[in-house]
């Protein structure tokens, strides 16, 4: 009846991969903040063996290299938040994961788990998508770098195989004139998952948006890139006319659903416009700050 029988704490990636291949009914575990609750509450098929990813050096990496941040998949979120480059060069991600749980949860929860859990409105994943993160995946066949959305198969369903492990996320660092922001709306009743969240990255050229990426959740079965909206905004100044058009397009390309006891689709469509305007505005203003020190305290309202 125990929710697992064997618990392994491999020290290397190879060891972890071979355990996952070898052991029947095995499963990778990082912080366990999603997985253990699902197992305890009978929402996950039973497992026999848990393979703990928390001590593998390759998954603990935090470094800047060639214009990108490399964030190990099992670095606890609090360590990611405390790492200055994330705050400076991937502000949306820092904002998003600061909102997850309390310090106790963030001391164990990871980005790898946030993505592999595959919810369409996971805060970390939405920010990563806006930042155009690539995912380094290890499998018994070797390692590959793939786009974030390639990790998704459906709501709560990862495209990763059981013996595949996310090693790290490669997040392009924001350069001059580039900035990002993240926002979400919660419902005070019920589970602490955003009823809607949005991450925006943009590059500004003078008074125009030169390039932009918008990620929204939950719209459809996986984190959603609002590409048509991005297209509307590209090359435009940030004025009311552009905003109104962008809002219209976003509402037509996004697919919001009603979740009983949480939010109606109608409310979510409404919020999409609100979040778009506010997040865009914040990101836009940030492009003018060259040093993240000037960001001031990030909004971490829960």
């Amino acid at each position: 009846m125990a929710i697992w029988t064997h618990y392994y704490i491999p020290q290397t990636l190879d060891e972890a991969l071979s355990l996952l291949c070898r052991e029947p009914q095995s499963k990778a575990i990082a912080g366990g903040t999603d997985l253990l609750l699902e197992l305890q509450q009978g929402r996950h098929p039973p497992v026999r063996t848990l393979v703990d990813l928390s001590q593998i050096a390759a998954l603990q990496r935090l470094e800047m290299s060639q214009g990108a941040l490399w964030i190990g998949a099992s670095v606890p979120l609090n360590r990611v938040i405390a790492w200055p480059p994330v705050r400076h060069f991937a502000t949306a991600l820092c904002e998003a994961i600061s909102l997850i749980g309390g310090p106790q949860v963030r001391n164990v929860a990871t980005l790898g788990g946030n993505v592999a859990h595959a919810l369409p409105a996971a805060d970390g994943a939405i920010a990563l998508l806006a930042l155009d993160a690539q995912v380094l995946v290890a499998s018994p066949e070797g390692q590959r770098l793939q786009p974030l959305l390639a990790c998704y198969a459906g709501p709560g369903k990862t495209a990763l195989q059981r013996a595949e492990i996310i090693v790290a996320f490669q997040v392009p660092a924001c350069e001059k004139e580039e900035a990002s922001a993240f926002r979400r709306v919660m419902r005070p009743q019920g589970v602490a998952i955003a009823i809607e969240n949005m991450g925006i990255w943009l590059r500004r050229k003078d008074e125009r948006i030169e390039d932009i990426r918008i990620a929204v959740g939950p719209s459809g079965p996986m984190p959603f890139r609002a590409r048509q909206t991005e297209q509307v905004l590209r090359g435009k100044p940030l004025d009311e006319e552009t905003l109104a058009e962008a809002e219209k397009v976003l509402k037509s390309e996004a697919r919001f659903r009603t979740s009983p006891h949480r939010a109606t689709a109608e409310y979510r469509y409404h919020l999409a416009g609100v979040l778009l305007r506010q997040t865009l505005q914040t990101a836009w203003e940030r492009t003018q700050l060259n040093f993240a020190e000037e960001l001031g305290p990030l909004s971490v309202k829960g």
Partner: peptide, 22 residues
Amino acid sequence: EAECGACTVLVDGEPILSCTYP
């Protein structure tokens, strides 16, 4: 279920929820 914090202890100096910590 990692919601209430009553089970908080420190592991290597960091607070964690011991009810969901293997």
